[in-house]
Simulated scan of single mutants.
Amino acid sequence: MSKTFTPAEVATHKTPDKGLYIIVDANVYDITNFADEHPGGAKILKRVAGKDATKQFWKYHGDNVLKKYGDKLKIGEVKDAAKL
Score class of each variant (00 low, 15 high):
N27R: 10
E77L: 06
E9G: 02
G19F: 11
D71Q: 12
A53L: 01
K83M: 05
V78L: 12
H61L: 13
G41V: 01
K51I: 00
D52Q: 09
D17G: 03
H13D: 11
L84V: 12
K67D: 14
A49N: 04
R47L: 01
N64I: 02
D36I: 14
V28K: 01
M1N: 03
T4M: 08
K83D: 03
H13I: 09
K51C: 02
K68M: 09
D63K: 13
E77T: 12
T15V: 14
T15K: 15
D17H: 11
K18S: 15
S2T: 04
D52K: 03
D63C: 00
F57D: 10
K51L: 11
N27F: 01
T4L: 08
K67A: 13
T54D: 04
K55I: 12
Q56K: 14
V28F: 09
K74H: 03
I23T: 13
K68L: 13
D25W: 07
I22V: 15
K67N: 14
D36L: 10
A35T: 10
I31K: 08
T4Q: 14
D36K: 14
E77G: 07
L66P: 08
D63P: 14
L84M: 01
G70K: 06
A35Y: 04
A26F: 01
T12F: 10
G76H: 04
D71F: 01
K74V: 08
D17I: 10
S2C: 00
G76P: 02
K3W: 05
D80G: 00
E9T: 00
V24W: 07
D52T: 09
K74W: 03
D36Q: 14
G76V: 02
P16Y: 03
S2M: 05
S2Q: 06
L45E: 07
T15M: 06
D25N: 15
W58N: 04
K83W: 00
F34C: 05
T12V: 13
V48S: 05
I23K: 03
A26Q: 06
T54L: 09
E77D: 10
P16N: 08
E37H: 06
L66N: 04
I23N: 07
V24F: 06
E77V: 08
Y21E: 05
D80L: 04
I44A: 15
H13P: 11
T6I: 01
Y21A: 05
N64S: 12
K67Q: 15
A35W: 10
K43S: 10
D36R: 12
H13L: 05
F5C: 08
A49Y: 12
P16G: 06
N33T: 15
K59M: 12
L45I: 15
A81N: 06
D80R: 00
A82V: 07
A49P: 10
I44W: 07
K83E: 01
T4E: 15
K72L: 15
P7Q: 04
Y21C: 07
V10M: 05
H61A: 07
I22Q: 09
V24M: 08
Y69E: 11
H38Y: 11
V28D: 11
G41W: 00
W58Y: 03
I23P: 09
F5S: 07
P16W: 00
G41Y: 02
A11W: 05
D52R: 01
A42M: 09
I31A: 13
V28P: 10
V65R: 00
E77P: 03
